[in-house]
Design a protein around this nucleic acid. Structure first.
Length: 259
DNA sequence: CGCTGGTCTAGACATAAACA
DNA sequence: TGTTTATGTCTAGACCAGCG
């Protein structure tokens, strides 16, 4: 499958990438007969040369940035009138990420049972862990299609500390993903090394996913966007692999409001 | 309220079902 | 409601095709 256009659609906007050169992906029919090269074991940060350390840091921050866009799209796709935003903190100073995550997972399970009275996980959520100054983890959670629950009930379900219900005031529909990803940003971007190999965000598996289309075309996109508002537009330089080397590939990006 | 993105994929990680 | 296990999802290193 090859393509020179990629379109991602969420509920309030579509994003269009136009690549100057067609991007090719490995053909199904051409089986790779070359023996697979052994994958290098992941090494500790200390074992890397300074250059490799920098490369790794760069890669991690790139991945984290991508996660931020991913979160933004997921939020936009799933946001509804019954969306709640919670922050959970613990009385105890829990500094172990895994330990905290386990507690968080149990909370989700209990909350799910309380609301749906079912063991089937029906709760729709998206969450990001964040470290506080004192070194303790806490979590920001977005709950979609979530009924009203009194704050003290939530405190009871959590049982380990504070529960904050944040109101999300968003001026316009297409800003909600942006607004929320800003809220999540700190958690996604911080502690790169400490959270190396860990997920940048957590989400239930029942969320709606943005739609992604990839195809080859030489049509202009102008007529598609004629009647819609362009929210953002840019042009930048990407890379394409050709003849054993990386060549420049100009990319036009447009973000367009839909309704 | 100003603004980002080569892709693929093994293997690590985390979620949810099954079970207790 | 807690714990174990199966399976979906994400990260980070590896790698890149030949046509509308």
């Amino acid at each position: 499958m090859s393509y020179n256009r990629k379109i991602i659609q969420t509920s309030s906007y579509i994003e269009i990438y136009e690549y100057e050169k067609v991007i090719f992906t490995q053909d199904e029919n051409i089986k790779n007969t070359e023996p697979k090269k052994e994958r290098k074991k992941k090494r500790n940060f200390d074992e890397l040369s300074t250059e490799e350390q920098n490369e790794r840091l760069e890669r991690i921050s790139k991945t984290r940035k991508n996660s931020r866009w991913e979160v933004m799209r997921l939020v936009d796709t799933n946001f509804d009138k019954k969306t709640s935003f919670l922050t959970l903190t613990t009385k105890e100073n829990i500094q172990d990420r895994n330990q905290f995550n386990l507690l968080f997972d149990k909370f989700i399970k209990r909350l799910n049972y309380k609301i749906f009275n079912s063991k089937k996980r029906l709760l729709k959520y998206l969450a990001v862990l964040e470290k506080q100054e004192r070194g303790a983890w806490h979590v920001h959670i977005m709950l979609f299609d979530f009924p009203f629950v009194p704050q003290h009930d939530l405190v009871k379900v959590w049982g380990l500390g504070g529960v904050w219900i944040n109101k999300i005031d968003v001026d316009s529909k297409e800003n909600r993903g942006r607004y929320v990803s800003k809220y999540f940003e700190k958690g996604i971007g911080q502690e790169l090394l400490e959270s190396y190999g860990k997920k940048a965000f957590y989400s239930s598996r029942n969320l709606k996913k943005p739609e992604i289309l990839k195809f080859v075309t030489f049509e202009e996109t102008e007529n598609i966007i004629k009647h819609n508002e362009v929210l953002y537009e840019t042009e930048y330089s990407g890379k394409i692999f050709k003849n054993g080397e990386l060549l420049e590939n100009r990319i036009k990006y447009k973000k367009i409001k839909i309704d």
